[in-house]
Design a protein around this nucleic acid. Sequence first.
DNA 1: GCGACAG
DNA 2: ATCTTGTCGC
Length: 226
Amino acid sequence: MNRCERVAQNFSPSKAREAQEVLSRLVRRESVKGEVLYVGGIDVSYRGKLGIGVFVIMKYPTAEPLGCSYVAKEACVPYVPGLLAFREMEVAAPLVGAVLRSHRIDLLFVNGHGIAHPRRFGLATHVGLVFKTRTIGVARRRLVGTEVREGNRILLTHEGETVGARLGSFYVSPGWGVTLEEALEYTSTLTRKGLPEPLRLADRLGKALGAEAGNGGDCAWLMREL
DNA sequence: GCGACAG
DNA sequence: ATCTTGTCGC
């Protein structure tokens, strides 16, 4: 049995859920103040067992692309609904940590739910708490909750709590340090077509990089071609 | 037991 | 998410 198989064997969904319940009490729901000039977008795509994490940096609110870096490594933790963060963090955490240490990022868009999660601790919230950075969760599909129309918007309600909202073809939920209102404002401002720009670009770059098979590094060169 | 189920 | 051929529609 190789290292990756051992990691998979060791992964305990029940313990991971317990961890989420403990950590979710530490999440900052109130808004963190501070001007937003630089935003990031993080996305992980897969090619077989290889996970490709991409981090893009953009100017806010123009969505001008400023930088890109990526990592590629075997994804060992299996995907379990509600535990996506444990799978993606294995690939993306080192990348996010490295970029946040060397660049100013005021707000980070994450491909996955924030508090719109069974234990209010989706991927975006997990990333925000670990790195103490404002995050917004954006997901194409719903994990929990029911849609409730309220005026001109569609809210996502779960167990009596408003945990997010639908914006066009995707769902938005607060990750860490932002309110739902702020999340919707920042997200709609950066949305041109489909997903918000930081995630749309990270998504396309990940797929393009998948055909390259590099180990990681700077991808600004490729970014300039898309 | 059955259906739902981010990426 | 990814695998994966042909096929339906604008």
